[in-house]
Nucleic acid binder design. Structure first.
Lengths: 338, 338
DNA sequence: TCGCGAATTGACAGCGCTGTCATTTGTGTC
DNA sequence: GACACAAATGACAGCGCTGTCAATTCGCGA
């Protein structure tokens, strides 16, 4: 039969309420008692019943991760974030629920309300690109549900979660190309209204400007974060009279598309063309030549965002926007200008 | 304030217990009463409190999806299954929890026990490759937790879930190559102990045998379901004195690797070499030329598996192993033998 | 119309925990 | 050593629902 809190209490010769206090890390329990209770819990392999805790305590010990499975950047990126969030939740004995939501669909808010009404999550983790969707944020605030974002586009006060300095990272990778002697550097942009696209474009521009290079508009082509859009963007670039010597794609999928298109045109990477991406998804390492890119620690970011959230949920702390570092993964797809 | 079952009861002029009966679709409620209660629920937008239901009813309304994030076939495949499972759970107002487990790790069973003890899932969905891990199945049976599998390797009685006739599908795609005149057809095998690898290899052999072609062992090379392993396998094949005219890779990632390697060797697909894969992941459509492959309806399979499971959980039905059809997606990577 | 078994409905306790508040124990002060 | 006050602990009700079983109503044949 199941071990209940009452059983632990009896074993430790204290009242159930005291065991509850220990379980919830509350103050006003003597060290001696706390130890005794913890020992009893351990010995009996006590597992609190989440539903009972939730019912009596008016909290669910549940974190929901919201994502947009319709136009998400890349499913492997989300999967990594998911793993990170899950890890953080596990550590704090919270459970996690995932929730696909279609931002462009009419019932977005209704589905969000249903989630809240049905499951009462103690907090919510938002992933790109739904970190900045105003009606969503408004609704969460109204409902009093704390939320943390992975890579939010805005940095207003009250925004908690985790971010990476993507603009800085984009600038760094373009500077890497500049250092290799490239001057005609193209950029394949991501979906227009994603924060990621804006930052990466800004970083690209910043690097060029700092190097005193005027931006050539034909070298900035629109993509959509997909492999196919990378292929198409590259075809446009390769059709140019004066081709670029390097391409910085706003994510790895598109970079792979660029490399693929290069193959079509008989352009050798990196000999004739340097290509770099952003994110460092598993594919980047598997491509040949291996892709130079920026490592975005998605898993770690998911975990950190969830940890920020849990801090707010548990300790009523104000929470903060943590920042993670990036690293340039220089591999074989970039070389000195021909 | 929250609408409770009691409030609905009052509005419908019945006892709380009767509302509960309606909520749980129990028998012995007159049609008239049922309608009245349902109307009241609707009008008041009543949402049962899952924790209260769980606590009182000794069930959790929770389905856990187990997966191996260490050596999983492909993360987009899992993501699709996850979406399908989620959809089925939503329809039946169950919640879903995801659970990464490392099959090769020592604490596998301990983590499984923790999952059961902590969350009491009413059922579990197993995804490849952990559909047939004996200690896991044993433990689930001991704990009395019903489980459904997506593509289980074995078909013993009591195995419920969903399968696709992968051998038949593999045979079909190889027959497609044969119909194009190919006789020297290579096969890149997946991870050895995965059911998927065995079936696909068996289908390959079956097709060759039926066509009266003796298997050439050098044309069957080992891969590991990853892009990189596809590249390496292809390099071995291209180093052969007598190259194959077609390659059937056991999944799309490896097929993409084969196409990539073909680029390295200046081999034109499909002119010089036909390539086909298996799964129809998004990448397949994005490759150039687009990849001929077998469509494995992962999302639908996840949904069906979950539906089978829920049937068992809710109606105590014995459950069955559903079967889904496959379809050959003939695209541009296969052509008549040169 | 009456009686009887089946169908329908309801009363009530309790699932395992926590919030509230009362009670007990400890600590420092003069 | 007595007192004031804070820290530690416990008693008890109740979170929102369902299981059990008793009570009531219904349908139908005699």
């Amino acid at each position: 039969m199941r071990v209940r809190l009452e059983d632990v209490a009896r074993a430790a010769s204290v009242s159930p309420k005291t065991v509850s206090r220990v379980l919830n890390d509350e103050a006003n329990v003597s060290d001696d008692t706390r130890q005794r209770v913890l020992a009893a819990m351990q010995a009996m392999d006590y597992r609190p019943h989440p539903s009972a805790r939730s019912l009596a305590g008016h909290r669910s010990f549940l974190v929901a991760m919201l994502y947009d499975n319709n136009d998400n950047p890349a499913s492997t990126y989300l999967a990594e974030i998911q793993d990170g969030v899950l890890e953080a939740c596990d550590e704090h004995r919270y459970s996690m629920m995932v929730r696909p939501l279609r931002m462009r669909s009419g019932d977005f808010i209704r589905r969000l309300d249903a989630l809240i009404a049905d499951h009462h999550p103690d907090g919510v983790v938002l992933t790109p690109p739904i970190t900045d969707y105003a009606p969503l944020l408004k609704r969460l605030r109204e409902a009093g549900v704390p939320h943390a974002s992975v890579s939010p586009a805005h940095r207003g006060k009250g925004i908690i979660g985790v971010r990476m300095d993507e603009q800085q990272a984009a600038r760094a990778i373009v500077e890497h190309l500049l250092a290799l002697g490239h001057r005609r550097i193209a950029h394949v942009v991501g979906i227009a209204d994603h924060g990621a696209s804006r930052w990466r474009l800004a970083g690209y521009r910043e690097a060029l400007a700092a190097a005193g290079i005027a931006e050539d508009p034909v070298l900035v082509v629109q993509g959509a974060f997909t492999f196919g859009s990378g292929v198409e963007a590259a075809r446009k670039l390769f059709a140019l009279k004066k081709r670029p010597t390097a391409v910085f794609a706003a994510n790895d999928d598109m970079a792979a598309g660029v490399m693929w298109a290069a193959g079509e045109y008989g352009i050798k990477v990196p000999h004739d063309l340097s290509v770099c991406g952003f994110d460092d998804i598993p594919l980047a390492r598997q491509l040949w030549p291996a892709l130079t890119t920026v490592r975005q620690p998605a898993r770690e970011m998911g975990k950190l965002a969830a940890l920020q959230l849990l801090e707010v949920v548990r300790d009523r702390s104000p929470g903060r926007l943590a920042q993670v570092g990036f690293s340039l993964e220089v591999r074989d797809s970039t070389a000195r200008v021909p």
